[in-house]
């Protein structure tokens, strides 16, 4: 739907375009956006994508990194599929970006979107979060090994997560089980409507364990907590309040899982636009405003430029489709 307004903008911009073409020959090849940039969160206000989009546009504005306005636009529906279908139609538009994360890979793999990550232009990976395994503070499971052993003995052991089967949390725990030599498909994964919902059920003793985002669980851990963290999916230990939680690797399970977030653009976005945004976002990560927001939201910087991000996405797709096929959930 916003494609039309962009068309209108480009009509208005025609004389300017002609002018800048001449100017471009004189100056160096420096591309800048012409008017405001549409920055799409493919979900309703309030979620992870939305928070990323709004935080970024605020920091860019506050720190005066760009003259243009980065307008946050929500296009909810279908776990992102509605927005992707819309953006895919806007080929080559240099002023349309969207926030992205593992569902960009998972939703198409499940067969719920016609477009996958290869249809869009990777711009940059920005931040990451990790999975965390939680149990009740009074539970007998002291280490990840305890829990995995119990899961092996009793496949009915319920592990709650914040998303549907075949999506992020399920893949994360199934991959962990598989790396530890268990049958991934045998994990009794119970989907809840969000990580918070799953954690409440854990506190109430309705389920045995929970897998969720480490950032989401920070508020639940620490002194006097009713929950105990058994492991995080990062390569190395995390900082801050989560520093005492051992990684899976430390506990002998060679498995990591990233909940990355980044920015992608329209199909075949012009190269000069991509490199402009790459630089802009790299610069943004250095600002105080960003670092303050990042720390409060429990995010970790994990910058990758367009090329590296693209390769990373391909790897992720291979990894996820392995786990999904082990689960028997690969869409056609």
């Amino acid at each position: 739907m916003p494609s039309l307004s962009i068309k209108r903008l480009s009509v208005l911009a025609l004389p300017f375009a002609a002018f800048s073409a001449i100017a471009g020959q004189v100056q160096a090849q420096e591309w800048t956006p012409d008017g405001s940039v549409e920055f799409i969160a493919p979900a309703n206000p309030g979620g992870g994508w939305d928070t990323l989009v709004r935080t970024m546009s605020r920091v860019i504005q506050q720190e005066e990194l760009a003259d243009e306005n980065y307008a946050a636009i929500n296009v909810p529906g279908g776990g992102g599929a509605v927005a992707w279908a819309q953006i895919a139609r806007d080929e080559g538009n240099p002023q349309k970006l969207f926030a992205t994360s593992p569902p960009m890979i998972l939703v198409p793999l499940a067969g719920a979107s016609r477009y996958d990550h290869t249809d869009f232009t990777p711009v940059a990976r920005l931040i990451t979060d990790y999975s965390i395994v939680l149990v009740d503070a009074d539970s007998d499971y002291q280490t990840l090994e305890d829990l995995l052993n119990a899961m092996e003995e009793d496949p009915g052991l319920s592990v709650g997560g914040g998303s549907a089967p075949g999506s992020m949390d399920h893949i994360s725990i199934a991959g962990l089980a598989s790396a530890a030599g268990l049958d991934a498909a045998a994990v009794n994964y119970i989907p809840f409507s969000g990580g918070g919902d799953a954690m409440t059920n854990l506190m109430g003793g309705h389920i045995e364990a929970v897998i969720t985002g480490a950032g989401e669980s920070v508020g639940q851990l620490g002194e006097g907590s009713q929950l105990r963290a058994l492991g995080v999916s990062s390569e190395e230990r995390l900082g801050g309040e989560l520093a005492e939680i051992p990684t899976y690797k430390e506990q002998g399970v060679d498995y990591t899982f990233d909940i990355w977030r980044g920015v992608m653009g329209t199909p075949d976005m012009p190269e000069e636009a991509v490199s402009y945004y790459e630089n802009l976002f790299a610069e943004m990560l250095e600002t105080d405003g960003w670092q303050e927001a990042r720390d409060q939201l429990g995010w970790l910087d994990a910058y990758q430029d367009s090329e590296a991000f693209g390769a990373f996405l391909d790897d992720q797709q291979a990894l996820f489709s392995n786990v999904l096929s082990e689960l028997g959930l690969l869409g056609e």
Binding site: G77, G78, A81, V82, A110, A112, A164, P191, L329
Partner: peptide
């Protein structure tokens, strides 16, 4: 509970 689409008739607008 399963990620299965029900009564969406293939429309992405009805997925949620």
């Amino acid at each position: 509970q399963t990620g299965t689409e029900r009564f969406t008739f293939g429309s992405a607008h009805l997925l949620d």
